[in-house]
Nucleic acid binder design. Structure first.
Lengths: 186, 186
DNA sequence: TTCACTTTTTGACATAGGTCAAAGGAAATT
DNA sequence: AATTTCCTTTGACCTATGTCAAAAAGTGAA
């Protein structure tokens, strides 16, 4: 599955693929496990083979706010922290028992330096991620709570039905009560 | 100046730099000129040598909403549209008479294919852009109107004082009246 | 200097969505 | 099955910010 995700963007050769895959480690992670704490430098990039993870952060008042969900087939990390090796603004945890593949920054750097193809892959991956962020930015900036929820339903139908309401409401920038009302109101 | 921006991320060789710079064209653009229309594919990546540009879009009710400002020394385009050659969600126009350097997608692709360094440069640029979007996303999702304005003042002091109020308020996701009140209230 | 046009400010009022608190439901643990 | 804990819904009330409209201030052309 990770192979498909790699080939989606760049036509890696067999040898390249083998070497790349060899750099990843399979990890079985239980629900609620924390993979990265806010303030730390993100040292690994994960691929979610099965399960769901999320990035989130704690507001001053102690409330958790979900920043992003990572479902099956997506690469997960605090992107800027990982690539810029800067302190992460977010924490990352696992919402469902999951199967992940992880690669360290060191190994990623070696691959990036060695393979032009890998550099291209990460470029395209970054741009795709960027495009998704832009979409969410739009949603938050211009849409009503209800519209944002509908956007969530169509963009992330899977996730919408597998995670607690509070995670989704904070992801969408609204209170849990508001989301609950929206859901019941039709 | 564009050279500095290139070298900021990657140690290009002299030869590389020369060839890269040769692919850019200098453009003098007047205030209010539109460089990209919503719905079109963005064909050029610009470097703002002097001046200010912005991306924006028109809401259903006809109101303009600024999505991003591009000041001196920044690369400007509808990133995802340019690299994915997809229809742009935004338009781009020029707010002050500006001096730009532009490169076409075709030429960029040639550079990307030829130079591993170029691929790396765009990767790092994308990630930096991503980090900025994440910041703005935070601001919009969690902060009050006033906090967002302060964030704007510290992050983009230059721009805050050179563009019309309405551009800034829509960029920050609030009405012009609200921003006006915030500004006068201290 | 005056006129026309644009941008910003101010006031009055409306409302989406927030907060707090309590009650129901579900799900996990014993 | 009973108990505890967590998650969701509902109600009452509140507030930040939006909308509409008019006045004021700024800008530029004639």
């Amino acid at each position: 599955m990770i192979t498909d995700s790699l080939l989606k963007f760049v036509p890696f050769s067999h040898d390249e693929l083998n070497e790349i895959l060899a750099q990843f480690e399979k990890e079985y992670v239980k629900k609620n496990e924390v993979l990265l704490n806010k303030g730390k430098v993100c040292s690994k990039l994960y691929f979610v083979d099965k399960g769901i993870g999320r990035s989130f952060y704690l507001k001053n008042d102690g409330k958790e706010v979900t920043q992003w969900f990572f479902g099956n087939g997506s690469f997960m990390s605090s992107v800027d922290s990982f690539f810029q090796q800067s302190p992460s603004f977010y924490s990352i945890d696992i919402i469902e028992d999951s199967v992940l593949y992880s690669i360290t920054k060191e190994r990623m750097d070696l691959l990036l330096a060695k393979y032009h193809h890998m550099e291209k892959f990460i470029r395209l991956l970054s741009i795709e991620t960027l495009a998704k962020f832009v979409q969410k930015l739009n949603a938050l900036q211009f849409q009503t709570a209800k519209e944002r929820y509908n956007y969530m339903l169509t963009e992330y139908p899977e996730i919408s039905h597998r995670v607690p309401l509070g995670y989704i409401s904070s992801y969408l920038g609204m209170s849990q009560e508001t989301l609950s009302r929206i859901r019941s109101n039709d």
